[in-house]
Simulated scan of single mutants.
Amino acid sequence: MQDTSTPHASDAQAGIETTDAFEPFAQKNDIFTRAFWDSSVQTKQTDAFFASYRMEAIPRRGDGFGQRDFALRNASWLISDIMTDRHAQDGRREGFQAPISSDTPVAPEKVNVDSPAEMSKEIKRISKFFKADLCGITAIDPRWHYSARVDVRDMSEVPNDLPEGITSVIVLGHEMDADLVATYPAALAGAATGRAYSQEAATVMQIAAYIRNLGYEAVPSMNDTALVIPYALKAGLGEYARNQLVISPEYGPRLRFSKIFTSLPLEHDTPRPLGVRAFCDICTKCAEACPVKALPFGAPEIGGANISALKGVRKWTSDAEKCFGFWAKLASDCAICMRVCPFNRDFSKWQNRLWLRIALSPLRAVALWLDRKRGGRKKPNDWWANQSSPR
């Protein structure tokens, strides 16, 4: 569906509410970036957290934290790591603190685009070919761009620029493996995150190369350049939830997002308000399950607990310092809030699609009651045993 309005006009439909206190977010205040410069975040545990991704930390004993668990997790990150590290000597940690460098020049001759709607269909087909699970398109909106990016050599702020002529953002969703997500928190489960990042690194680079070969500008991007959640909401890929994740009707919360900034003429999608917000209003499973109580109870509020919170937006906001502190303690990422989310289901099954219809209806309390016994953790050793079983 064509979105011909200004970027701000569809905010309400996307569930976005800004106030006069809104400020673009400074990338240096992202909790992961702060771990490189902020002494209030840096600890021996954070050092061990980063070292564990190079197998330098002694693996913890116990189910899900053995050497092969860390080995699989770290192997899953390999493609993303190679791409990220290739220009680190220039201060660019690409995909995280800087956009991904283009390996393909823009073709000197543009392919004529008579119909932006048809071109959008083409891009969605190409995104599926390159293994993106979801694709939505929305207008460029500088509000969500970092006010400055970070040079990782000295953690100084540098301009966060994009090429001239960018008009659209292609937002891609990448599914995380459901069986691995079920084992959170564990180093093993981190392989679901790493595999998604490695896949999205390849996907955004290949789609961007395709567009550049058509003669148009395209900048591949992961966590860098701009906040991806507002773009995902505006592109119609899902709704924002209490657990700080985007809930999609296809994969629930099990998604990582990437994006491509482009000048290619494209039709824009519209947000899809389905009823997730109303469900989250009565559901607090993620907040109750969080070991360090980093997730909020109650209604969405403006602001947050620390400088890693976006200012001037009314939304559910986590305490990023508590959250990352727990990650550091684990020496791996935690997504218990994803695992216990009632929307974390296999929607290829008819009974889960039926549950979804109930959850997004006025009968949402019934859906929450039906979910009361779900979300338990699967043993990582059982995952290994199942993978070893002959087919």
Rank of each mutant, 00 (worst) to 15 (best):
I82P: 08
D154T: 03
M176E: 06
Q89C: 13
Y210H: 12
I100D: 02
T4K: 12
A226K: 02
P99M: 03
E301K: 10
P163Y: 01
S318N: 07
T183H: 04
A35P: 06
S263N: 10
D154P: 01
N29K: 07
M1C: 08
V366L: 15
R54P: 03
V152Y: 02
E217M: 12
A278S: 15
F257Q: 08
A365L: 11
P271C: 03
A12M: 06
L172K: 10
K285G: 01
T270V: 14
R242K: 05
S5F: 01
R353K: 15
D346W: 07
M1A: 06
M205S: 15
P108S: 05
S101T: 13
A12W: 00
T18H: 14
A21S: 14
L214Y: 08
C286I: 02
E23R: 11
V219P: 12
T183Q: 07
F32G: 04
E23F: 05
R143M: 01
A278F: 05
T203W: 02
M222Y: 08
T225C: 08
A196P: 08
W369I: 06
R372Y: 01
G303T: 14
T203H: 12
A235I: 00
S40E: 12
Q13C: 04
G95D: 03
R149D: 01
V313K: 08
I229C: 06
P300F: 06
S40H: 11
Q351K: 09
L162M: 14
I211C: 09
W77N: 15
A365M: 11
G95Y: 00
P159R: 04
P291D: 08
L330R: 11
D224H: 03
E94H: 00
A305G: 03
V41D: 01
F25D: 01
I82V: 13
V204N: 06
L245S: 15
S248K: 03
V204Q: 06
E288Y: 10
E56M: 14
S5G: 09
A57P: 00
G62D: 07
P296T: 07
R377Y: 01
P291T: 00
E250F: 09
I247Q: 02
V113Q: 06
A189Y: 01
A201I: 00
A235S: 15
Q45G: 09
S101W: 08
R374E: 06
R314F: 00
L78Q: 14
R153W: 02
G194P: 05
A287D: 03
Y231L: 14
S248E: 09
G303L: 05
E23S: 14
Q13W: 09
G190P: 04
P220M: 04
Q42W: 04
D161S: 11
R254P: 01
R314Y: 02
N160T: 04
R391V: 14
D382A: 13
H87G: 04
A14E: 10
R242T: 04
W350D: 11
L180W: 02
R68F: 03
K28A: 15
R125P: 12
D179W: 05
Q387N: 12
R125N: 13
A75R: 12
D154F: 08
E157F: 02
V169Q: 09
A189C: 07
N243V: 01
